[in-house]
């Protein structure tokens, strides 16, 4: 179902739940993996994904459609992730690097990465990036999102995003090179 049809049905109270169910089914996987890349842990990603869609439900009536629906959902998901990570830091009084190290430890324990040293180092390097830079890296490297769409999601200029991604790639390459065995 097209976004336009979903939004049209959502306006009608009789078909609102059905339309929203369609919306969730359409975007749940993308939202989940967007969140999962940021928080790594499945349970955290599950909670946040549900929170994202509850927020979408609450505000969809006021969605003005001056951005694509998916861009708007991504923006909500991004804000949820950044708020979650910063609140985690505040809650446990953790400095910036410790959350990255905690996430990296979760990555190391993930059986999917067992035996793939380069991939493991790559993930560790990504998780050591500051949250916002990591977000930029994920959107560009994994999702291959155009900078213009990234700018809509993050509220940052295209030039700043390009610079951020360039620096992120350099940091990642440097970390993997330094920590990988010959």
């Amino acid at each position: 179902m097209e976004d336009h049809d979903i939004l049209l049905k959502f306006q009608d109270p009789a078909s609102r739940n059905l339309a929203f169910n369609q919306l969730v089914r359409k975007y749940q996987s993308k939202v989940y993996w967007h969140v999962r890349k940021m928080v790594v842990d499945h349970d955290d990603a599950d909670d946040l994904t549900q929170d994202v869609f509850v927020k979408v439900w609450k505000h969809l009536e006021n969605f003005r459609q001056d951005a694509a629906l998916f861009t708007w959902i991504y923006r909500i998901a991004t804000n949820e992730c950044l708020n979650f990570l910063s609140s985690k830091r505040r809650k446990f009084l953790l400095p910036l690097n410790d959350v990255g190290a905690e996430l990296a430890a979760k990555i190391e324990a993930d059986p999917a990465l067992a035996g793939d040293e380069i991939e493991l180092k790559l993930q560790q390097a990504i998780l050591r990036l500051p949250d916002k830079q990591r977000l930029v890296f994920n959107l560009r490297y994994y999702d291959e999102m155009p900078y213009e769409q990234m700018a809509e999601i993050t509220g940052t200029s295209v030039g700043a995003l390009k610079a951020s991604y360039h620096h992120a790639v350099k940091k990642v390459e440097e970390y993997v090179t330094r920590t990988t065995d010959d």
């Binding site: 989940y32 993996w33 999962r36 890349k37 790594v40 499945h42 990603a45 599950d46 990555i107 993930d110 059986p111 999917a112 990465l113 793939d116 380069i118 991939e119 790559l122 993930q123 990504i126 490297y141 994994y142």
Partner: peptide, 13 residues
């Protein structure tokens, strides 16, 4: 490095 659509994390249940 071979590009993947997402990091090599374990799948959800």
């Amino acid at each position: 490095h071979p590009r993947r659509p997402r990091p090599l994390l374990s799948e959800p249940p």
